[in-house]
Amino acid sequence: MMFVRILGRMGNPFLGLLRELGEMAILLVNCLLWLPRPPYRLRHFFGQLEFIGVRSLFIVALTGLFTGMVLALQAYYGFRKFGGESLLGGAVALSMTREIGPVLTSLMVAARAGSAMAAELGTMRVTEQVDALLAMAVHPVHYLALPRVLSGLIMVPLLTVVDVFIGILGGYFVGVMLLGINPGTYMQKMVEMVVASDLYNGLFKSMVFGLLLALISCHQGLKARGGAQGVGLVTTRAVVYSAVAILIVDYMLTALLF
């Protein structure tokens, strides 16, 4: 009896996780089914592109800049031990394109836009605005989730490009201007070490992360219950689940792609 109870306790979170994954898969399929159906609400869609993309630009650029700078400092410290300082440009660019750019951009967008998405949809849910949409024969997946998921899919890779570019600039500033590495060597190593597939794979990863964080945030928002507490709960969950999912999927994709 005791054993069954322990198994039950262990199984419940697992079943909960499976339920969440199943619900998200259904949301994704619903988004795909609604995608070709009119009305297309372009103005609404552009509003989401702006909210997720344009308004995340500053924070993404800022984190990119300092990440590139700190990366250059740390890598320089490591390379100096065996006289490989000249590899700094390549190391920074490679880390930014393959790993840090996509992951950090997605985490920042999850924190800024994902949380806002979950809070907005959660508030709409608990104040019956989602029911009002249904009562007006408008599907919430079509009107609320689809434009957000598409915007995540499109804008996170674009933001990643900005993040990577600014990060490389930050690395260049620290490596060349502060640590005195020859600018020609810095650029040459970068060109030698980074190949096009590094960039494509990084962008592919960021597309998957963008899709994931938007899907998780919309799913959490639309299942909010109760009042302010319920909205707070789904907002926290949206950010935590998005961050965990991004890191886990990052490992899986890296293992598959690179």
Binding site: T123, M124, T127, E128, Q129, D131, A132, L133, A135
Partner: peptide, 8 residues
Amino acid sequence: FQHGALLD
């Protein structure tokens, strides 16, 4: 709806 449920 009870509280109107206007899209805010």
